[in-house]
Design a protein around this nucleic acid. Structure first.
Lengths: 276, 276
DNA sequence: TCTTGACTCTCCCGTTGCTGGAGACTGTAT
DNA sequence: ATACAGTCTCCAGCAACGGGAGAGTCAAGA
């Protein structure tokens, strides 16, 4: 029988921690004086405490440790918990590794460019999206204005409400001077009678969508693409689908130089086998 | 100008989070209605929010992000913070990797042995320790009793108080039947007049001391050694110094089979180049 | 015009694994 | 007797929000 301070010295665990473990029931004091409230511990309790510490080293939470210690677990259950923990750690290491890659890409960028880029690229998952879509080939991107007119005219005639910001999908894999293959899309909730050119379809979901927000006139949106493509290659990703432009805040009718437009440029990506 | 819910949809950041960022000053609403308290945001604020999210992806805390965004940082300071973050992530990955190795070692052990070992091995740093020490060669470990008598007699005569649990250092690298080279040590605070055989010296610190607590008679302490050595090899460590036995709870005078003794067996170790 | 329902506001609590501090006792040594 | 070290029980705080209560606000339909 010894007091908490002695047990603390013995185990090199702080008194505070011992009291906490007592409170949460992980390691109850062997005896508590009913009058003074003093906790008393025995040498017998050292193995249990050491087991707690060892399990903590494995990364288990105190709650999990409580289960591992108190419930009579079968070997299978024990095995399951360890396997789970193993998977969690692997997952965590994966994430950290990607984080590290991003930090290093920023460092390279910083040394190259003197100052931080004005664009911040991120990855997010994007769900499938039900849209009214019109795909066509137009001479240049600004010419898609006609397509939008056609699309919205039909929506209005059918009395279908837009349901979120509109977007354009760009299908060309390489940059072209003329004849862009693109599709203008407007999310809708309900149904819509299709026409020859306008149909309702589901835009594919993307697990990893690299994106960047461009705030300014369309005329400078190339910079956003540059930043995005650079980030993608620097961070060891690969583009696996057509680009999207989501018009978070639409420009005034057809104006290409409205400085108040906000556009999100997106590329579905996946991790390349081995980053450079 | 839009309300918080619209800005939330736009940015895919929860309303709660936006309010929190407002509270902590990371992203203040562009305007707050003095009467209703409603927050209003502008499209202009989207880039800042995206920068916050991007920096969060790099693993910075909100406080650090606040610095990165608000203070006018020089490129050097920015570089320094990124370098620091890089080092932290590397460190963290290292730790996770070791954790993973420990979990996997437990898994192997579990499949081999049907049930968890009764010994829990851990690693801790051990500080240097000032001790009164007597080193000698004795036929077998139990014969160290004479050395203890000699040591304590001298301490008593000099009026020096013990200052912590006593321990024995075992210098033999291989197991021996007879003639053990060992050193009995008692931590002391003050000074002590040395004798021909007894001296005061500093036990070396060890950055990584693998240890296990044995609770039971000395006669079975071999099991603790077995478990410890097995753990060390399974987890990819290497022994780099002599073993120590710390007598957390001393046995009754010379009794080898006192079931209430508590002994901590220690080996200084380091990570081997590449674990099996 | 009233009502409904969706939105927003400000608190406050809970999360994890403790650490630090205040204020009150208790135990031991001088 | 007194000092001082040890112990007790609260309570607050960390990080980054999420959940929920209770009250007020806004836009649209009856």
């Amino acid at each position: 029988m010894m007091r908490i301070g002695d047990f603390s010295k013995l185990s090199r665990v702080t008194v505070k921690t011992l009291r906490y473990y007592d409170d949460v029931g992980l390691l109850k004091a062997a005896h508590v004086d009913g009058f003074t409230g003093y906790r008393y511990y025995t040498y017998d309790q050292l193995p249990r405490l050491n087991r707690i510490l060892a399990l903590k080293d494995l990364g288990f939470s105190l709650q999990e440790i409580g289960q591992l210690l108190n419930d009579r677990l079968t070997v299978e259950q024990m095995y399951g918990m360890l396997k789970l923990r193993q998977a969690q750690i692997r997952q965590h290491m994966q994430e950290e590794s990607e984080r590290l890659a991003r930090v290093e890409a920023r460092l390279r960028q910083l040394t190259q460019e003197e100052g931080m880029s004005t664009y911040d690229v991120r990855i997010k998952p994007v769900a499938a999206l039900r849209v009214a879509a019109l795909r066509a080939v137009v001479p240049t991107p600004p010419d898609q204005g006609q397509l939008w007119q056609e699309l919205y005219l039909h929506l209005a005639r059918e009395g279908v409400q837009p349901d979120g910001p509109c977007l354009t999908v760009y299908y060309d894999e390489e940059y072209k001077e003329r004849d862009w293959d693109l599709e203008v899309c407007e999310p809708i909730a309900g149904d819509l009678r299709p026409t020859e050119r306008i149909q309702v379809r589901n835009l594919e979901a993307a697990e990893q969508m690299a994106y960047v927000v461009h705030h300014g006139p369309f005329t400078t949106i190339g910079e956003a693409y540059d930043a995005l493509m650079k980030w993608v290659s620097e961070n060891g990703y690969r583009i696996i689908g057509p680009a999207r432009e989501v018009y978070l805040r639409a420009a005034e009718k057809g104006r290409q130089d409205d400085p108040e437009t906000v556009t999100e440029v997106q590329f579905p990506v996946e991790k390349a086998r081995e980053a450079a």
